[in-house]
Structure formats: structure tokens, C-alpha cells
Design a protein around this nucleic acid. Sequence first.
DNA 1: TTGAAAGCGTTACCAA
DNA 2: TTGGTAACGCTTTCAA
Lengths: 344, 344
Amino acid sequence: MNLKQLSNQLQLSQTTVSRALNDYPEVSEATRSRVKLAAAKGGYRPDMRAISLATGKAKTIGHVVPMANKDDVFSPIFAEFIASASQTYSQYGYELMLTVEKSRDDASTYRGLAAKRAVDGVILHSPQTDDPRLAVLQEVGLPFVVHGRMLNGEGYHWVDMDNHNAFKLATKLLLDLGHRRIALLNGREEMTFAWLRRAGYEEALNDGGVAINSEFMAADDLTERYGYQKAGAMLSMKVAPTAFLVSSYIVALGVRRAISQAGLVMGEQVSVIIHDDELSYFDNGGVKPQFTSTRSSVRQAGYEASKMLLELIENPDKEPTSVLMDTQLVIGSSTGPCPSLSES
Amino acid sequence: MNLKQLSNQLQLSQTTVSRALNDYPEVSEATRSRVKLAAAKGGYRPDMRAISLATGKAKTIGHVVPMANKDDVFSPIFAEFIASASQTYSQYGYELMLTVEKSRDDASTYRGLAAKRAVDGVILHSPQTDDPRLAVLQEVGLPFVVHGRMLNGEGYHWVDMDNHNAFKLATKLLLDLGHRRIALLNGREEMTFAWLRRAGYEEALNDGGVAINSEFMAADDLTERYGYQKAGAMLSMKVAPTAFLVSSYIVALGVRRAISQAGLVMGEQVSVIIHDDELSYFDNGGVKPQFTSTRSSVRQAGYEASKMLLELIENPDKEPTSVLMDTQLVIGSSTGPCPSLSES
DNA sequence: TTGAAAGCGTTACCAA
DNA sequence: TTGGTAACGCTTTCAA
């Protein structure tokens, strides 16, 4: 059923019906309720493409997730974030269009999205420290919000976790427990989140007067094997770390395996702090989290970013805003005081 | 730039320009190339909503992922599947619209999608054995393909992994190694994939003349803690399992932890076979996989399903088809012959 | 308070 | 081989 059929059936003009349905004030209460009733009974739903064409608003938000290489899934973090944003959109009558882009420097994705009028705005995922997409989007003039941050460029809207502070605090916690040899198992540092985590870690070490030791730092894809192998290698060094700061729960599982294989016990001879991606999957070993979980933070971030974008679309000249989620993302797991073997 | 502007600039009618751009045969080669050149230079991209309205095709596919409860992320499997399907769509000029539905029995999601003309077809994720969405979709008449299967209803298109056979083969493998006490750590059995896995497991046990022991079976959300706790409990039984068949790598990590905590060694006193969700995350401990990885199968499934749906949209009266991915999803990890303690 | 008609940017039919 | 025009289903301006 379309507007014409509905208005014929009601013996009213399309104009009046449209106005009644869209809550225009000038239509009488009597007709409005009559129209709304008939629309509901007939199961009338306006054709979104027609609305879109008539109003110039697509009522659709694009999410762009880069697929770095073909082995790269988009992470559960994105899924959670997007699922959360999706709730906001449907609440405000928007749809979500997902684009998986092959390459971060293929400008045609954004030019295409803008020119095709497919979306009113875009949320950008997985930003790099120096990300070519920023310039393209700014040039194209499509409203956008970044999930995360770039380190090149300015004047854009973003929502990010405070990765820097989270890792700084976690490092400080370990320092306060007496640790002096703290290993960092980080994600790839082209990604801003990893870059900032490392920066936070280094800052805390500097503040604590502890020299940075590159042998205690690693950056790679976040896999169990990576955690196992790197932690194993580090534990077999003559002067081994007494604590690990780990970028993801899955890596932490590998670290745990390496520790137990080395005959050590987490929380006794070695401490581990995890930046947890999926807290619900992680057995915390009875240790109370020092901070709150990522899960809810990511949901919150998805909500913030989607709201921010919708507002930006309403008011395109809005000053660039940003949200730095002050929820801490780090949980403590099996943290304990520095064992005797750590006297450096 | 729109069609009118482009045709004015070229001193041609909109009709001719449209025909040239869409490769209609009746336009001369000279004009065609002239038009295409100008379009490319001017960065002309047709407004997809106008095309949509004029042709009646949305050129958009909907993916519907249920969010069972608010703690439920959509799994990495969906992400991988959707990412893969997304490639197909962009290759054929389609967009992907993602909908996260609150509840599986909210029929309005599908009626809405159909009535709003937002999509030409839908891919349904995470089917249950008895899924209310099937009837709704069949009634609405929107072309759809199920990622997985329902056990209620018939006559729909689907693409699924052969979960039944995978678990049957895996169980048989363990039986052939001499195991008689094989535990199953399954996902929730309202989901068809889990239901079928259990069926395959039971079938192999029956074929092997081994009695089914419900104390060796569990079904729950796939978390590390679940694997750890269930495996731990089972290993402490008077008559403990000698092998575990596990529904997900993340659960398997928990099983591994329980095994090592019990002082046993995987591949020696206890065997473990995993249905691996993310092979690349899993350290296989040097044991060669018996079968191939889920990762590539899921990508393949995403490709098959998206192609199937596009064909169905072309030809809506097509007979229901289905693809049962014969790629085996099970990998062997640390499988070994039945240890002496398993003499039953 | 209601309606007629133009317009959004395409495609597609019918003429030329 | 090209062009004029209706049509897609809405919103919105202008008139009544």
C-alpha cells in the first residue's frame, strides 16, 4: 500500500494524508486519527527511497570498516560498537549501511558514498596514526565521526577510549607494586589505539624513573600464539620480566600458558594485567577487576558516536567535538606484589 | 553533478546520456565514449535512491542479526561471513544494510524492511531449531537466504556448514583412537548448529556401540570459563572422560587450562578436538590439523549465500536451493591414542 | 483545514 | 540513433 492508495481509500488528498502521518500541526485531530488508524490497519509504510528523494535525506548512516588484508576479520570490538550504534539509529529512524573496504587509501569508497547519496554521514573504524582517509573525508564534505583517533590532522569529530591513560595507570599500578621489569605485549602500532597504549606505558615508566627496555616490548596481531611465544621468549631471558601488560584477553591467554609452562604462577612470581577485549570470556581467577570492562565501554562508545553523528547531521557546522571515554579499560588479573626474583 | 547537469553540459538529452552510461546498444559509439568521458571527468555518480525509485530495485541486501540479550555480541563468525558477503555485493553493485534485531519474534523487522522497500532481499543469521522468523519471511514474500538452517519448515534457501557430519567424524576419530569416554562441550542447543553437532556426536557413539552418557555432555554460551569449569568438573569425576570434543576454540582454551591444572597433558592422558572458530588465534601445539579451518569455510559460506541471494532476486521463482559446506570444520588438536586410564 | 501541482533524479516507453 | 515525457512515491509550496 502506498500513499496514493491510502488517500484514495480515505477520500483525502495525498497532501493531507502525508501531513497527518507526519504530525503537521495544521491537520485536524479528527482526520489525523482517522488517517493514522487506516494507515496502521493497511500496514502502510512509506517507501524510504521516495522519502529520501523528496527530502534529500538518506536516513542512513554508513559504517566503514577497513579490511587490511584478506585474513583480517573485523574485530569483535567493531561488532559490539556497531551493534550498539545500530540501536540508536533504529530509535531515530535511521538505517545502517555497512561497507567493508579493501584498502584504506582507496578514496573512491567515500567519494562514492557521498556522490551516490547513499548515506547522510559516516562512521570510520580502525583509524591509523597517519590515516589517508581523513583528508578524503574532509574534502568530500560528508559528515563523519571517527571511532578512535588519527594523529595526523585536526578538526574532526571522534569518540575514543582513553587508551593512553589506561595503559599509563596500569603501568603505574605495577610500578607501585614494586615491579621494575614490565613487559608490554601490544597490538600493531600503526593503529592509533596501540600507539597510544605504548605512549602511556612509556610515560608511566619515565615518571617512575624506570628505563625503557625495548626487549620487553612487542607489537603484533593479537593472537594467542603471539602471547604464548613472546611471553615464553621473554621469560627465558636471563633477566626476565616480572609483569606483563597485555593488549587483549586473547593474548593474555597465551601469556598464561607460557607462564604455567615455565613453571611459574600468575599472581605469585609473575603479574599480568590485561586490557580486556571480551571480559565475559575471561576467567579472572577470582581477582577483582581493578577497573571496569571493555564490553560496556564499547557499547557506550557506540552510543556516543552514533548520537554525535546524528547531531552533526542535524547541524553540519557544529564545532568538532570529541569524547574520550574516561571509563578505564584495564582490568587487573592476578596482580600481586613484585616477587623476590624481580629485584633488578 | 546530476544527470540533468551532465546532459546540459553535453548538449544531449537525459535519455541519451542515461542510455550511454548504462550500455544500451542503440547509442552510437562516438556519443557513448564522449558521455562516459564527461561523466568520469565530472565525477558523476547516479543518485542511488532515484535509480531505486525508478527501477523498483533497492540494490541493497539486508543482513539481520538477532541480539538475543543485551550481553550478546554478534559473533566473529557473523562478522567474517558478512565481510565476505559484502565483497560480493560491492562487486555486483549492491549495498549491505545491517539490522540488529532485539527479538527473534518481532515480525515487524521483516514486514518493515519489505514495506519500506529498503532491501531486495535478506540474509538471516543465527537460526534456531524452531525459529519464528521463518513463517514471517515466507509470508512477507521477501527473498531470503538463511545462514544456517531451521528444523521447522521447508522450502527455503540456505547455506550451512555440515556441523552434523563434522562432529560425527570427529567423534569417530576419537573412537577409532580407542576412546570410549568422550565429552561434548557444546553451544546452546536452541541454536541449530549446536543441535546438529550433538546429533552428529550421538550418531557416531551409537554407530560405535558406545552408550551416551549425559554426564559427559554440556551446552552453554561459548566462553573460556565454561570450558574451564565444565572440563574441570568432568575431569574430577570418578570415571572421567579421556577426550573432549569442543564447540569453539575459546572453550578449548578453558579446557586446556583445566587439563593442565589437573596435572594431565593434552595429547597424552587426554585428547581434545576442537571445532575451531578462529584457527589463526589458536596455537595448535605442533599437531597438524586433521581438517581445514573454519575461517576459510565461513568466508566461502558468505560468498555462497550472497551469490545465492542475488540469483534468487534475479529469479524469484527459483526452486529452493541449499549448500551444505562439505569443508570439514573440525581440526584435530593434540589428539592421541586412548591412554591406559581410559580402559572402560 | 484541505487540495493541486511541482519537484526530487533517475529509467523507460513512445515518437521522431 | 536521439529526444520528449510519463512514471516511481513521496514532500512541500502555493492557493483556496
